[in-house]
Simulated scan of single mutants.
Amino acid sequence: MADTEPDDRTLVARARAGHQDGYAALMARHRDAVWRLARGAVGDADEALDITQEAFVAAFAALARYDDSRPFRSWIARITLNKCRDWARRRAVRRFFAFAKPLDDAGHIADAAPDPEQALHSQAELARINAAIAALPASLKDVLLLRTIEGLSQSDTAATLGLTEKAVETRLYRARAKLSEMLRDDAPPRV
Rank of each mutant, 00 (worst) to 15 (best):
A64Q: 13
I133K: 03
L126N: 08
K101Q: 12
V93H: 12
A62P: 01
S122Y: 05
A132N: 03
W75C: 05
T80E: 14
A112I: 10
R78H: 07
L120T: 13
H121I: 08
L126G: 06
A135G: 11
F72Q: 05
L81K: 05
L136H: 06
D104Q: 05
A88F: 00
K101T: 05
K101M: 12
A77S: 15
H121L: 11
P114M: 15
F97R: 07
D104H: 04
P102L: 08
F72L: 14
I76L: 14
I76N: 12
F99R: 09
A135Q: 04
R85S: 09
D67S: 10
L81N: 04
R85T: 09
A61P: 00
I129D: 01
D111V: 02
R85V: 04
A77C: 14
L103N: 02
N82Y: 01
A113Q: 11
I109G: 01
D67H: 14
R89T: 12
W75G: 04
A62L: 11
R90Q: 10
A55L: 02
A88P: 01
A124H: 07
R89I: 12
G107W: 03
L81D: 00
D115L: 15
L103S: 12
W87A: 09
A112H: 08
D86W: 02
G107F: 04
S122H: 09
A106V: 04
W75S: 05
A55F: 00
A88G: 03
K83G: 05
T80C: 11
A100G: 13
I51N: 02
H108R: 06
Q123S: 10
A113M: 08
A113H: 10
F99V: 01
P102G: 09
V93Q: 12
D104S: 12
S122P: 00
